[in-house]
Amino acid sequence: MSGAPVLEVDGVEVTFPVNRPLLRPFGRPHSIKGVAGVSFEVKRGETFALVGESGSGKTTLARAINGLQPVSAGSVTFEGQRIDGLGRAEMKLHRRRMAMMFQDPIGSLSPRQTVGELVTEAFRIHGSEGRDMRAETARLLSLVGLPLDFADRYPHQLSGGQARRVGVARAIAFNPVLVVADEPTAGLDVSVQGEVLNLLNDLRERLGLAMVIITHNLHVVRHVADRMAVMYLGRFVETGKTEAIFSEPSHPYTAALLSANPEPDPDKARDRISLPAEVPSLLARPSGCEFHTRCPWAREICRSTPPPASERAGRVLTCHFPLGPGEHPPERIGL
């Protein structure tokens, strides 16, 4: 691992306009913040996971990193160069080195192209530089563990796991330094999920990739990510080393997410932190700590004052009352 980070995200915000003129007289905002100021960095050979529930801004952040979504504040630095706000042509140069794997393995492949065409599409976009397409197809398919005769197949002839492998092959065509994978295993069976994660891990080691993995599956994060960030309403509520967060979650939301993961063990004693189900709307962000509406530990100060970010042993946390080891909620709240 070299010292300089491959990717540095600093205070990034992404806003979406809300075009509802009727709401304006009532003082509703004209825009909402999908990502509300997040910072992190990823080094070579490192895997960083973004975790959170639907609507927490994980995918928007990924799109902001690779320029598919304009950044309204903050900066994205890739290999030492600022890339936020770059034009299409300039961004194109960086996209070779920064690959994206989109959600939905089969849906993200054009149904009219063969696997061979799909894995070499990057060369048609970025220029083949005299490469032999047949040789490139063979190289990429073998890197992701697919037989060469798959080159003539169409996406509908692939299983979910095979389609994911094609997605990986597409992503690594230009030897990128960074891969951003959005839900790389969603919808896959457990036995196949392992194959895809093992493949990503192997490639990360062999090619020295930096990876950003977006997922809602915490069990996956534990095994693949070196560091992780838990997102809530577009902000990081807790960031740190994966193992440390798993063994001792400090933010109540992290603790609730971890405890909400059903384990395949019927004898496991369940000590669950249940949260009120309703996630606040981004149009009306809660005052104070934005998690207070669902937090079993919330006190008066949490309703009025936003908690500052604090750092402790490499862990960044935004909470007034971080949890101690194994701390349980004061009372149980149902749905």
């Binding site: 457990v190 999920q193 392992g194 063990d265």
Partner: peptide, 24 residues
């Protein structure tokens, strides 16, 4: 047995190589 083994939630220690069921 293999299906249970594959579930990352069953692996309490961090493993870099997850078990799979090869084949289709």
């Amino acid at each position: 047995f293999r299906l249970l083994d594959c579930d990352p939630a069953r692996q309490h220690q961090r493993v870099r190589h997850l078990p799979t069921i090869p084949g289709e």
